[in-house]
Amino acid sequence: MVTNPLDYVEPFGKAGASGFTFHVEASKDNWQELVERIKSKGMRPGVALKPGTPIEEVYPLLEGENSVEMVLVMTVEPGFGGQKFMPETMDKVSVLRKKYPSLDIEVDGGLGPSTIDVAASAGANCIVAGSSVFGASEPAQVISLMRHSVEKAQNIS
């Protein structure tokens, strides 16, 4: 999470990033300009929100011409890896999935074999996993298990 995401759009675009996700909490005053700039650099805009931020904060960013294309629901407080998954954040995922059925909904924080089913069932279709993958003796198995859980929840074969 950075305090002024506008400062990072151009460098990320030049570096070849395909997407740029910013925190709603850090962009309340300039999110429209930020989304325009992200799209002008050929990147896909996304918005993230911390566990304590009400889901309603992202609604304005999802509606209208200049909308984001993905919402990242943080399932831990941003800042460092290895935190415990906060299951109460799944209410946000469920609400988003119901309101925006085709939206990409990403979850990040504490995702692994013991938490993936609840996230996938709530409607998350993009999963960020760090510690559970990189700390596993068989990372490919963990990735496969999580992918299968999301596909099963979405009825994808």
Rank of each mutant, 00 (worst) to 15 (best):
V118C: 07
R37Y: 15
E65L: 10
G64M: 09
T89C: 15
I143S: 10
R44F: 15
V47C: 12
E36S: 14
G109H: 03
E63C: 11
L62I: 01
L72Y: 05
G79H: 02
E65N: 09
G81C: 08
T115Q: 05
K84V: 04
M74H: 08
P45E: 01
K39Q: 13
E36K: 15
M70I: 13
A48Q: 09
A119T: 09
H148L: 06
A48D: 10
L145E: 07
V35K: 09
G46M: 00
E88I: 14
T89E: 09
E65P: 14
V47K: 02
K92I: 06
G123V: 00
S114W: 04
I116P: 12
E151S: 09
L111P: 00
I127Y: 09
V35T: 14
G110V: 05
S40C: 04
E63V: 15
L62Q: 00
G52F: 05
G135C: 13
E36Y: 12
G109E: 03
C126E: 07
G135Y: 08
M70A: 13
K50S: 13
V142Y: 11
V118P: 01
A48W: 06
S137N: 14
P60N: 02
M146S: 09
E36V: 12
V93P: 01
Q83I: 02
L72T: 05
Y59I: 04
V58C: 13
V35P: 10
V150G: 05
T75M: 07
V142H: 07
D91I: 12
P45H: 08
M74C: 07
A122K: 12
N66I: 09
M146E: 04
L49A: 03
E88N: 14
G81L: 03
M74R: 04
A48H: 07
S94I: 01
E138T: 03
R37A: 15
M90K: 09
R44V: 14
S132Y: 12
M74F: 09
S144F: 03
T53R: 03
S67N: 04
S149Q: 07
Y100P: 14
P54E: 10
K99H: 04
T115Y: 06
M70G: 08
M86T: 02
L49Y: 02
V142R: 03
E138W: 05
E106T: 11
K41N: 13
V95Q: 13
S137I: 12
P101D: 07
R44T: 13
A119F: 15
G82A: 03
L49T: 00
I105W: 15
Y100E: 05
A124W: 08
S121G: 03
S132G: 10
N125G: 15
K92S: 06
L62M: 06
G46T: 00
L61W: 04
A48L: 11
A140I: 07
G135F: 12
K84W: 00
M43G: 10
L72E: 00
G42D: 07
G81D: 06
V71E: 00
Q83G: 04
K41R: 13
P60F: 06
E56P: 13
M146G: 08
L62D: 01
G82D: 01
D108F: 14
L61S: 04
I127S: 06
S144M: 00
E69Y: 07
G81R: 03
S40A: 14
S121Q: 01
L72W: 03
S131V: 12
L96F: 11
R44W: 11
E56I: 12
D108H: 11
